[in-house]
Design a protein around this nucleic acid. Structure first.
Lengths: 242, 242
DNA sequence: CTGATCATGTAACCTGTTACATGATTCC
DNA sequence: GGAATCATGTAACAGGTTACATGATCAG
């Protein structure tokens, strides 16, 4: 549950309301985490129920009352404990790669247009992150959290590297597609079109697997069961725990 | 709804059952999309309800009956239509970056350990993807879908570039943290610890924003409303539409 | 006999997004 | 007067994961 720990992390800077937490999210971690108010408020209630934060109502005359949350000792322990544990990996989900994967159904120009659009958006993201470095410097100074600068900047470095890699990829991909043979596009006729063919394809897959290097071989087809999803045989599963 | 379109994409290769679709997911798109059987079966029912696929029961004596799905004309149109539209961007969510962001609460060595673990997992992912190139070549040949090779390989190229960038980042980050001043770690005392300070921090933020280049300035504080989430002022929002 | 394979599903749950509701104040 | 600000929430929905249920056959 990363959200609750991110909330704890901010509240650890100092007592805050849900509304203020939302601002912190939007101004400092939006490039790698988002949270809506409708998610923050119930999460704070749960943190309070677990004794990780304490709430005090701040009565105001001319504005709505505020609920100010502070971290407890138990909350600080929980935060430090969680921070020190290996990070979860979220399953990668990239709609653009679905489009590329099935790109043979499109015309060359349509596929390029989709990738061009992707490249443009990524370029925008890179530009924003380049500003962000400067922004963080000013911000941490303004709020007196200079010690945090290194850590905040590191998260931006990550976003920059990753987005630049994405951008490089999409530009490369466009080039490769441009120079590809026209015959592989707008494919109507595929390799097989019957149940038996899919079956023999799966058998072929097993033969291919046993030819490949680098992993222990399995004598027969891998089924769709829990066990070998995590054992990760020959196929290129790559986003869940080692 | 990327999942349904991915299903359509595979069924477009040829008639298939849910169980077979799961195998295709696990062997060829697992590095950028996952789908459980419990999600595939109802999705197929919906696709059928929408007239995008057709189902035929294949009665077998010695094994459970199968439901074989084929794509319809309408389904093929829907697929091509979706493929040609700009891809959605999923909100980035990186638990590891939350840990780095709040890294000042950890000891130097604990933070390095977390990043080391992240680097190791990423290295494993890179190794798998390196195998995957070879695997795809053999696989598409075995199932007679050679025309698909370029597209499938491109999706692996993307994963490789991105994961290598991540790996590079985590190694850099470890170095930067190693050489950082010890005083910024295990931070108990933060810059402010009262409500009023958070408020003045938010005001400081607004002053900072107006100093920054590259975007149109806003005269006053940005609130937590829908409208300017999409207008993306000065902060480094970067993962939603331009 | 145990466990894997083939094959289909349902139900509960978790996380997150969108829409809706309220209501005073302040800025243009 | 209308929009934005401050400040709190609820409800519905969407997407995905985990657990559970069934049941036959085949391999070790």
């Amino acid at each position: 549950m990363s959200l609750k720990h991110a909330l704890l992390g901010f509240i650890n800077y100092g007592p805050m309301t849900g509304y203020e937490l939302k601002k912190f999210f939007d101004t400092s971690v939006a490039h790698f985490w988002n949270a809506e108010l409708s998610q923050i408020y119930p999460a704070l209630k749960q943190l309070e129920g677990d004794g990780l934060v304490e709430m005090k109502v701040d009565v105001q005359e001319d504005r709505p009352n505020r609920k100010v949350y502070s971290i407890t000792e138990s909350g600080r322990r929980e935060l430090i404990d969680w921070l020190g544990k290996p990070a979860d990996r979220e399953q990668v989900r990239e709609p653009i790669l679905i489009k590329v994967f099935f790109g043979s159904s499109l015309s060359k120009q349509d596929l390029i247009a989709v990738l061009q659009n992707c490249a443009d958006e990524t370029r925008t993201a890179v530009t924003y992150l380049e500003h962000a470095h400067l922004f963080v410097d000013k911000f941490v100074e303004a709020i007196g959290l200079q010690q945090e600068a290194l850590f905040w900047q590191l998260t931006i470095d990550c976003g920059l590297k990753v987005h630049r890699a994405e951008l490089e990829w999409s530009e490369d991909a466009i080039q490769k597609i441009k120079t590809a043979d026209d015959s592989i596009f707008e494919n109507e006729q595929h390799g097989y079109d019957g149940v038996n063919d899919v079956r023999s394809a799966m058998e072929a897959l097993d033969r291919v697997k046993s030819l490949l290097p680098g992993t222990r071989q399995t004598p027969s087809a891998r089924p769709c069961t829990k066990e070998n999803q995590s054992s990760r045989p020959l196929t290129f599963h790559c986003s869940k725990g080692a």
